[in-house]
Design a protein around this nucleic acid. Structure first.
Lengths: 236, 236
DNA sequence: GAGTGGTCTAGACCACCCC
DNA sequence: GGGTGGTCTAGACCACTCG
């Protein structure tokens, strides 16, 4: 771990532990330089991490202050944003996956466009229903070019595709572009999510990219609205 | 405008104009240093802006590459993320606001907690329905401590509260913490959003902060799902 | 091994806030 | 006017990729 991350973690711990309470001013950057024995630009890099997490604010001419947020929020924010699939975000819980479809097809024009391939190429066509300890959570519709993800087997689809991509194929996931919407469930979703009565779904349309800039996944996941919320922090 | 922003804009234009096409490698950082006549850390800062926008990827040992995204996405991503209220995001459109409620009340325990005030304090209690050229879009429920936003009048509520805060009160908005959910409309929402049939809403719960770290707004906005989607880019 | 971006330094000047 | 964080420099070394 590099210096600025260590320092960011240290300050973060001082906030979560209550050594720094909401509203209080942090040590000056110049003071932190001496305390940690690093240059000022490294301190700035560390504190900027906390700004992006939503834990502190910086004001030129004034100083750096702990944001006045609820205690519960502090805990959630202080967990570094992790970019992962469903399996990882539910780590520690018993995740069950039902594979509803696992085929290879030609992509629609829309999917081909999103994945920057042609309609003559082939993509995996995967539909999965996934549950955690609370019960059914989400139905995922996933399309991935077979050229980019060779050798995908049912056993990977039944557990974690992302684990296969990262651990077995040694490919690095760089980012995801997401669009969120509210939708009503289809009949298939009513069935697999065990929906009774009137319950909308939170839909997340996603294009995920490797660290070389190529898109490798187009997916639509539709989550039970009573079990999923999506949190985000916007700065500026 | 500072150097790294100018350089970021310049590179961004080269991407949107097609001078850099998806998948192509950008000039090396060392080359950019000479081209722009700045140090390498400034180039890095500039390119990092584009990484965060979702336009390019950087790989140590390889170089920097334009992300392979749809043309339409490039346009959307290249518009700098702006943090604004409803009025600003619909700039250029005819925004209509119907004020359904504009009162002063004590906050509930939940709202008091989010705004870090006590239940004995006072908050504005505002409900508005807002439309753009397409028709009704959103119903907003807003609570703001009267101490932080003195002098708020009906005329501001009818147009833009954010404009009043930033332009008149000269207060700076630093960030917002948001939680997104899918919900069904209430009767009030069915009426004001002119909903016919079965249409879910995209709910955005938001706590907004000043640049000194104090929360000044707790709001819930419920958007017609057929007219609103929420886009976001996650890196790493 | 050659070349890439990642991190870090020690110092400088600047824009802004508050007194 | 004194003090804050923001930007920028010129250079160094490191971790990683690829042929």
């Amino acid at each position: 771990m590099v210096k600025y991350q260590q320092i960011a973690n240290d300050i973060r711990n001082k906030i979560t532990s209550g050594e720094y309470v909401p509203g209080v001013q942090l040590a000056l950057e110049k003071e932190m330089c001496e305390y940690y024995g690093v240059s000022r630009i490294t301190i700035k890099r560390a504190v900027d991490e906390l700004v992006n997490l939503g834990l502190v604010v910086k004001r030129r001419g004034s100083g750096t202050f702990v944001k006045t947020v609820e205690n519960q929020d502090v805990k959630e924010l202080s967990m570094a944003k992790q970019f992962t699939g469903f399996t990882e975000t539910n780590r520690g819980q018993k995740v069950q996956t039902e594979v509803i479809r696992f085929d290879i097809v030609h992509p629609s024009q829309e999917v081909a466009s999103k994945l920057q391939i042609t309609e003559d190429d082939f993509v995996y066509d995967i539909i999965r229903a996934r549950s955690n300890d609370e019960g059914p959570i989400v139905v995922e519709y996933t399309k991935m070019p077979i050229q980019l993800i060779p050798g995908l087997k049912k056993e990977h689809v039944e557990t974690s595709i992302y684990a296969y991509i990262q651990d077995k194929l040694q490919l690095k996931i760089q980012s995801a572009h997401r669009t969120l919407r509210a939708v009503m469930p289809t009949e298939l979703e009513v069935k697999h999510l065990h929906i009774e009565g009137l319950l909308p779904l939170l839909e997340i349309e996603q294009v995920a990219f490797f660290d070389d800039g190529r898109p490798f996944e187009y997916s639509i996941s539709r989550h039970r609205a009573d079990r999923i919320a999506f949190k985000t922090v916007s700065i500026r």
